[in-house]
Computed example of a mutant assay.
Amino acid sequence: MKKLATIVFLALSFTTYAQSNKDMKSFDSNFAHTVYFWLANPDSTADCEAFETSLQKFLDNSAYAKTKFIGKPPKASRDVVDGSFTYSLIVTFESAEAQQNYQDEAPHKLFIAESSKLWTKVIVYDSKGIN
């Protein structure tokens, strides 16, 4: 019985926490672009909805972004976890050139024009895979 309970728990955990975004493509380890946003009014439902809508529209129309992950900080469980941001974005690319094309494409520029008034701070971390 204990074994059955463990199997059911694991099955439910996997189905609950697995990626379910049908548009998500596989992670490309060549180039990762991680962005953290601090909204000016993070408790404003209207601002959060406007930001999420604009960001999703941008990602849906990007010709270059592969992995498209939008997140919010979980409740910090350790002192080393920085949960001060409002939203995170992780996008991967097949190359640094593809990432530069993403920066220059119209959907990205529209997202910035629509949403930059909503944030007070943005930090970007770009990484190239070591393999």
Results as ranks from 00 to 15, higher is better:
D47E: 14
E49R: 15
F51L: 03
F51E: 00
E52S: 12
E52H: 05
E52Y: 09
E52D: 09
L55Q: 09
Q56T: 15
K57F: 05
L59R: 00
N61Y: 06
A63T: 10
A63D: 10
A65Q: 01
A65I: 02
A65H: 00
A65D: 04
K66W: 05
T67H: 13
K68R: 15
F69W: 11
F69G: 04
I70S: 04
I70W: 03
K72D: 01
K72P: 01
P74I: 15
K75R: 12
K75Y: 07
A76N: 09
S77L: 15
S77Y: 08
R78M: 12
R78Q: 12
D79I: 10
V81K: 07
D82P: 12
G83R: 07
F85E: 02
F85A: 03
T86Y: 00
Y87I: 01
S88L: 11
S88N: 11
L89R: 11
L89N: 03
L89E: 06
L89F: 08
I90P: 00
I90S: 10
I90E: 09
V91A: 15
T92W: 02
F93P: 00
E94C: 04
A96L: 06
E97S: 10
Q99D: 01
Q99S: 06
Q100G: 05
Q103L: 07
Q103N: 10
D104A: 11
D104M: 07
E105L: 08
P107V: 05
H108M: 07
H108D: 03
A113K: 14
A113S: 14
E114V: 03
E114D: 15
E114F: 06
S115F: 00
S116C: 02
S116H: 08
S116V: 00
K117E: 08
K117T: 11
L118T: 00
L118A: 03
L118S: 01
W119E: 06
K121I: 02
V122Q: 03
V122A: 05
I123Q: 15
V124S: 09
V124P: 15
Y125N: 10
Y125P: 14
Y125F: 14
D126L: 08
D126W: 11
S127G: 13
K128F: 08
G129M: 07
I130L: 15
